[in-house]
Design a binder for these strands. Structure first.
Length: 296
DNA sequence: CCGATTACCTGCACGC
DNA sequence: TGCGTGCAGGTAATCG
């Protein structure tokens, strides 16, 4: 489900509830998600105050006082929702619009805010590709985060860096952009969208835009700009709501309406003046959507 | 080193 | 109504 914009949207939804609150109790309703929960998972969190909620790529990091850093990944189908006594006891509110099976509520964090208000943070994940791990000390040194590449937010990712990352790589642009060791946070949707915005073919060897002299440099600049803009636009729209994905407060993201190619097989290309249409191809076993007419 | 394939798991849409 | 098939936003292990 969630690529960087969705994870960032989740983070922003949870932050006001979690930061400063104390974790009173942690329930795990099964022994594992993708991986087994860490030893003494609940015990090491209970009683501690949450200092901050961060994000690296598609990972959420929860920092507590005098405890481990909780690293959460949502996998394909993971989501968090916030329950307060108001929301839980009020039938027919937004819960109704998106009945999500409690069958897959795997973890519940019972919180007490500084004001004394109680809240529950519930992690739901039907496919259980998500996971929760602990980092001792600096989370960025945890094996799961240590190898991650540059964030596609902010100014660091530019044409020059992209050229350095791609130089000599014969892998298709699609695969290069999905490689979290190069750029961290892009997923299947936003890779298709970024390549369309940049007018670059997903099948083109990544190295060819890094080695093509002036034209190559222009392509790198276009791609860096496309990546940053599509991620920024998606975050601003509150992410994409596909299938059952919703925000922590139950609301929906809107970016799926702004998709240019993803899941639009057969539609006319939206690029002004382009006569092409959106095609679906399969690369490394996953769908890629692109316009062969304007993406070269 | 590289890339492609498979595995992990459940739900849903679709055709019959 | 049910059943088989394919597909789904993730990462990681394995195989050439």
């Amino acid at each position: 489900m969630p690529e960087l914009p969705e994870v960032e949207t989740v983070r922003r939804g949870l932050q006001p509830v979690m930061e400063g609150a104390r974790i009173m109790r942690v329930e795990t309703r099964r022994p594992d998600l993708r991986f087994p929960f860490p030893e003494r998972f609940a015990e090491r969190l209970e009683g501690r105050r949450i200092v901050s909620l961060g994000r690296r790529a598609k990972y959420l990091t929860t920092h507590v006082e005098d405890g481990p850093v909780l690293i959460c990944h949502l996998g394909m189908s993971g989501s968090f929702r916030v329950e307060t006594d108001d929301t839980a006891d009020a039938p027919g509110e937004f819960h109704h619009a998106r009945s999500k099976s409690a069958t897959h509520d795997h973890v519940v964090f019972h919180l007490a805010a500084a004001t004394g208000d109680a809240a529950r943070i519930v992690f739901n994940d039907p496919r259980r590709f998500g996971f929760m791990l602990f980092a001792e000390g600096n989370a960025s040194e945890h094996p799961m985060l240590a190898g991650l590449g540059v964030e596609p937010t902010g100014n660091e990712l530019d044409g020059k860096l992209l050229a350095e990352l791609f130089r000599g790589r014969r892998t298709p642009l699609k695969a290069a952009l999905l490689d979290q060791r190069l750029i961290a946070g892009l997923g299947n949707i936003y890779v298709s969208e970024a390549l369309w915005r940049a007018g670059l073919s997903p099948t083109r060897a990544a190295g060819t835009i890094a080695e093509g002299g002036r034209k190559g440099m222009e392509a790198c600049e276009r791609l860096a700009t496309a990546i940053r803009s599509v991620i920024a636009d998606a975050i601003e729209a509150g992410g994409s709501s596909l299938r059952d994905y919703v925000h922590a407060d139950g609301s929906l993201g809107y970016f799926q309406h702004a998709f240019s190619v993803y899941d639009r097989e057969g539609e006319a290309c939206r690029k002004p003046g382009c006569k092409g249409h959106v095609e679906r191809i399969v690369q490394s076993g996953r769908s890629t959507f692109h316009c062969a007419a304007c993406q070269r």
